[in-house]
């Protein structure tokens, strides 16, 4: 019992406080004129890597760029319109779904919000 009194606060001390999502749930990424067709821009969102892609059909999509397998940052392959993780070879399609393992879970998708010329990414209206 005494040990628990010591161990609990020690473990809590080493566990970092969670980030309050309400404070950082929307981020400015870039402007429309800086995103060519079929290009990607990587940025930090919620303290993790994320990616914004300007699709060939003119639409925009944004996903977490953190591979769901072991956490490496995925790369965008414009020729195949998919994402590859160079650490262990997982491939995800443009919607974040797994095309090739070892990853088994999809990349979380974010909501793209365009205000005038500015592109924002937010978690408020997650697509997946």
């Amino acid at each position: 019992m005494i040990a628990a009194y010591i161990v609990y606060p020690v473990l809590r001390f080493f566990t970092p406080p969670a980030v309050a999502l309400g404070e950082v749930d929307k981020v400015f990424v870039t402007t429309l004129d800086k995103m060519g067709l079929n290009t990607a821009k990587f940025f930090k969102f919620l303290d993790k890597p994320a990616v914004l892609v300007h699709l060939p059909d003119g639409k925009y999509t944004s996903l977490s760029a953190k591979c769901t397998h072991m956490g490496c940052t995925v790369a965008f392959q414009s020729k195949d319109d998919n994402f590859i993780c160079e650490c262990h070879g997982s491939i995800f399609n443009i919607d974040g779904k797994v095309l090739k393992g070892p990853a088994t879970r999809p990349l979380p998708v974010y909501y793209v919000d365009i205000e005038g010329n500015k592109i924002y990414v937010t978690v408020k209206k997650q697509l997946a």
Partner: peptide, 10 residues
């Protein structure tokens, strides 16, 4: 650069 993807052949 923590934002950029993992390089090929890592």
């Amino acid at each position: 650069n923590p934002v950029l993807p993992a390089p090929a052949g890592i």
